[in-house]
């Protein structure tokens, strides 16, 4: 249940940034979660709403965008989209695949009211 730790961290960093910007209200927080980041988007959403409610962000929209990864076959050099650690190269069926991206876990942006 590390999503709760992540939700607390997101809300804390959101509030710090909003204070720095002199915001009176946070309308939306845009969050990017890679498909290989080890984070369940639904669970994070649930935790963000629960934490947000207790921290004065009950009306804030937490928008989670999931992003994919790219597989690179180390046998035939093919490049293809991947969404799990268990991928076979679609060209040569090798399982010797290196993965790039998909580990993103970022607060992309805030929409605030001045």
């Amino acid at each position: 249940m590390h999503e709760m730790s992540l939700a607390l961290s997101i809300v804390e960093q959101t509030r710090e940034a909003a204070t720095r910007e002199g915001a009176v209200r946070i309308l939306e927080v845009e969050i990017e979660v890679g498909c290989l980041a080890g984070v369940l988007a639904d669970s994070l959403q649930f935790c963000l709403e629960a934490v947000g409610k207790d921290d004065g962000l009950a009306d804030t929209i937490f928008r989670i965008t999931e992003v994919g990864a790219t597989g690179n076959c180390r046998v035939c050099a093919a490049t293809f989209p991947a969404d799990s650690f268990l991928v076979l190269c679609p060209s040569c069926a090798s399982d010797d695949v290196s993965l790039n991206g998909g580990r993103e876990l970022k607060i992309r942006s805030l929409t605030i009211e001045d």
Partner: peptide, 15 residues
């Protein structure tokens, strides 16, 4: 009245 600010900060930045 509203503006969007780009953060691009890692959620686990502090850790």
């Amino acid at each position: 009245k509203f503006r969007t600010i780009t953060l691009e900060t890692e959620v686990l930045a502090k850790n």
